[in-house]
Amino acid sequence: MPILGTSLLLAGCGGDLSALDPAGPNAHNVATLWWIMLWGSTAIFLFVSLILCLALTQRGQRLLSPRWLLIGGGLAFPSVVLVALVAVSLALGERLLVYANEAPLRIEAVARQWQWEFRYGDDTNIATLDKLHIPAGRPVDFAVTSDDVIHSFWIPRLGGKMDAIPGHTNTIRLMADKPGTYGGVCAEFCGEGHAIMRFSVQAHEPNEFNDVMQQLSASRAERQQ
């Protein structure tokens, strides 16, 4: 119940950049992991504080024998928690990779001071600046790189970030569940324009997405004539 309450509260105040207002499977997994860890940590924090208070007020002496504290509290307890946590997060992390049976679309995200260029599919002629179009419900593999300094490609509501590093190309798979507009930012400090290096993400119905692509390629052809 309190979980629900807090998440509603947070969802209410989340902007279009809130990692706590997930709109894709990747971000969903992380949000789940976050809530698990938040409540787990709260419990651990309260537990440690309780033991500290007992120690300071000289109560529960038998419970607080040094052996119990050192072996139980210092070794066994964190080991168990950590093993469980690492297992959960690895599982969630691997799930990030396999969430669709449909072949992913490939989009190149090229960062430079201070803008994002997106090139679509194999036909890299189609490109947009600071505005990303994706189909909803279909996974997209972003090939992220940079023309100058290091940047980082991040759409918080869809999932984790990936650094854009000159000379390297990194891939991250993201998917939007539903059509809509999401915010994107550059997360790695990249100089004076870092704060304004934003982009917006438009997730379309699949047909609509194809239309947008066609329009883009048409308008590009027009401009080239």
Partner: peptide
């Protein structure tokens, strides 16, 4: 410090790190 340690463990978890990193 205990709170800092707990958020440190959170950040050590890769999927969460990729969201929280650099924020």
């Amino acid at each position: 410090f205990v709170i800092g340690g707990l958020t440190g463990v959170m950040l050590a978890m890769v999927p969460f790190n990729l969201q929280a990193h650099d924020t």
